[in-house]
């Protein structure tokens, strides 16, 4: 009986992503004050199970946000190296 899952069920895939992003966005600054939009984008752009898991477990949120930031930093470093 997860309200969010119930809300998501009848929505289109794009609407589901939108809802998940709207839910995630205000949570991100608690673990990473910067890059909120990018981190939300990365988490939203995965299979829906991932953002759902993050929303349900705060520990997972911090972990996934860290992964996202690390990936971003690696990408920036790679771009600078070019």
């Amino acid at each position: 009986q997860d309200p969010l899952t119930t809300t998501l069920a009848p929505a289109s895939p794009q609407e589901q992503k939108q809802m998940l992003g709207e839910q995630l966005f205000p949570l991100i600054p608690a673990v990473h004050p910067t890059l909120t939009g990018k981190i939300t984008g990365m988490l939203t752009d995965t299979d829906n199970s991932e953002p759902l898991c993050v929303l349900e477990t705060p520990v997972s949120l911090a972990s996934k946000a860290d992964e996202a930031v690390t990936a971003l930093q690696e990408k920036e470093a790679a771009q600078k190296a070019k």
């Binding site: 966005f25 939009g37 990018k38 939300t40 752009d45």
Partner: peptide, 26 residues
């Protein structure tokens, strides 16, 4: 191509329709 100005990951903005990877110019 505007691939240099928009890059992965797509940025999420509340209230703005999410297009995911469609935001990115391949």
């Amino acid at each position: 191509s505007n691939g240099s100005s928009i890059s992965w990951p797509p940025e999420f903005h509340p209230g703005v329709p999410w297009k995911g990877l469609q935001n990115i110019d391949p």
